[in-house]
Amino acid sequence: MTLLEDILLLGLIVTAVAAPLCKRLMATVIVYMSFGLLMAVLWVLLESPDLAVTEAAVGVGVTTILFFLTLRRIHELKGTKDE
């Protein structure tokens, strides 16, 4: 179990460093989403399932959707330019 935790913690660091270094905003959002997913699994391993569920629902799901909608609004995604 500790090996899994170490891998997850390493993944947290990697995604946290990678998120601001991405060139495209969409890639940043996806990397941030994977950060939240790793965090949710870590919360389960740290024996706080309440936090894990909330992180998975709010931090990964709804926040990412809102980010994507904002990116579409500012025409950052491919194919969302106004005609």
Partner: peptide, 17 residues
């Protein structure tokens, strides 16, 4: 059990979305 108002509501909202 784990869950409750905030997380359950967020999941419900996610399903609606």
């Amino acid at each position: 059990s784990p869950g409750g108002g905030f997380s359950g509501g967020a999941v419900l909202g996610g399903a609606l979305i």
